[in-house]
Write a protein that binds this DNA or RNA. Structure first.
Lengths: 224, 224
DNA sequence: GTGGAAATCTTTTCATTGTCAAGATAGGCC
DNA sequence: GGCCTATCTTGACAATGAAAAGATTTCCAC
């Protein structure tokens, strides 16, 4: 795999390391990830990555950042195929979320399930928040009120995100048995059914939920 | 921490390793977990754990098994405080799930987010399935039909599990902002509100969900 | 009891990894 | 052309997981 290199300088090492890094991640999982293995695949010395990413955490964070960008792209790609109905569009975002998590499970696990990622990387934070804003926008278009100013709308965001995120997490962990075998129509049907109560524009069933007693606002959820 | 030991044999090394292992996991997270560090804390040689757990994966799997047992215990503990109403009991299970994930986040992350755990360990499988059965029983008592024989009931199980699991996963990853600051009443209120549509005994809102066209049954979801 | 046999734990060794420091090479800028 | 800096390599070190071989204790048939 390590292509011959005549020049001393690689030319585009940073990008090559990212590509190889994702490959290693997919092959071995986050736990088996090795910086030296990445360097080996690219055909450079084992210390070369340090000059571009600092340490292992740096490369992993860069990969996670790329993952969040792809997550946003996947949600938007699904939305592009949806109609103008706000419910359909929110559903489409959810399906895009599933698409992304499914197509690169190891990367997804890294993004949300690795403590090495909890680093103050501005690029990472920005990418994560962008994806989160997409979800908030979807809910706002559905309810007509911004989740950032309305507590109940934000609760809706949290519920929808939790449902979709939990589903793909369990799916990728192999805990979803036959449901995981669903593709296309059936998966969409499952989601439409499960998300349906959250997709209503009118007040959801909150009859038993007492309103918050104190004035503390529910801060926006969001990555990092 | 490593207490002096006069005898050559430890006496209860296996249990001691499990205790120390959980401590290390909590201190360093799954990524930083080290077998040698565990041995060091117990005060034995670095090769001692191998005779009880084989390799790192073996110890981690044993820890995950213990985690699943505690998960089931936490769900039951909450149920013990609930009334006879089937909705309240299912809600209580969910709150117990959150309790467990919250009280030991690193262990929870290990259980569901580490590829080293996907091992054919019969104890692990059994413990995971026991917790899953608890959830299925709750849903069965609510709907009057077993999820293992009814596809729509199983879909309800998958949705409820996804919602709760996604919530605690995002919560532990720090993505839940202010919602994570909720304790007691407010958290319960949020869950009651989000789960409410899934807690109805009558058919959930599935109007837009076409029934499965083929005869393939939705296999029961479940760990491993 | 007693003498092996098995279980438990230690010591030693080796390959691998992440990180750091120092040196080699290339491109850019004056 | 000559220096300067970014880029990459080489070498070294400590830590880790795992395996092999040795030491110590317990167990158990007799």
């Amino acid at each position: 795999m390590a292509k011959q290199r005549s020049t001393y300088h690689h030319g585009d090492l940073r990008a090559a390391l990212l590509r190889a890094g994702e490959q290693v991640l997919a092959d071995t999982g986050p736990a088996g990830f090795s910086l030296r293995e990445v360097a080996r695949r690219v055909g450079v010395s084992h210390a070369a990555p340090a000059h571009h990413f600092g340490d292992t955490q740096g490369l992993l964070s860069a990969l996670a950042t790329e993952g969040f960008r792809r997550l946003l792209a996947a949600m938007r790609a699904r939305q592009a195929t949806a109609g103008p109905d706000a419910r359909d569009r929110l559903l489409a975002s959810g399906l895009g979320y599933v698409d992304c998590a499914r197509s690169s499970p190891a990367l997804f696990r890294l993004m949300f399930g690795d403590e090495r990622i909890a680093t103050p990387d501005p690029n990472l934070s920005e990418a994560g928040e962008a994806a989160f804003r997409q979800l908030c926008d979807d809910v706002e278009k559905l309810l007509g009120v911004s989740p950032f100013s309305d507590e109940r709308a934000m609760a809706r965001v949290a519920a929808a995100w939790s449902l979709v995120h939990g589903f793909v997490t369990l799916l990728n962990a192999g805990h979803m048995g036959g449901v995981g075998a669903l593709t296309g129509d059936r998966e969409e049907a499952f989601f439409r059914s499960a998300l349906a109560p959250l997709l209503e524009a009118d007040a959801p069933a909150e009859r038993k939920a007492p309103q918050a007693r104190d004035g503390r606002r529910r801060r926006p959820a969001g990555p990092s």
